[in-house]
C-alpha cells in the first residue's frame, strides 16, 4: 500500500484512506484530506522531514509520522 510520505516531491496523488484515528483524523478531514482528494507533494524540509503538501490550495506541512497515516493511489 502506498503511503503519502513515500510519494515523490512534485507528484500529485489521490487520497485513498486515512489510518489515523480520533483527533488527528478529525484534523485531517478538516484540512480536506477526504477520500479522493488530490494532494501535491511540494517540498521536503531541511532534513527531509516534515514535508509540505498542497492540500486543497493550502500549503500544509506534515511530519512523516502523520503522512504515513494517509494511503494514496
Amino acid at each position: 500500500m502506498l503511503k503519502l510520505h513515500n510519494a515523490n516531491v512534485g507528484s500529485v496523488v489521490t487520497v485513498k484512506d486515512l489510518t489515523s484515528t480520533g483527533l488527528l483524523r478529525e484534523r485531517m478531514l478538516a484540512l480536506g484530506l477526504t477520500k479522493g482528494a488530490q494532494v501535491e507533494v511540494v517540498r521536503r524540509g531541511p532534513s527531509g522531514d516534515p514535508t509540505v503538501f498542497n492540500i486543497r490550495g493550502a500549503m500544509i506541512a506534515l511530519r512523516n509520522e502523520e503522512a504515513s497515516m494517509i494511503t494514496i493511489s
Binding site: V52, I60, A61, L62, E66
Partner: peptide, 11 residues
C-alpha cells in the same frame, strides 16, 4: 513520543 504536527504555511 512526539504528537501530531500539522502546520500551515500561509502565503
Amino acid at each position: 513520543i512526539p504528537s501530531t504536527f500539522t502546520l500551515e504555511l500561509p502565503p
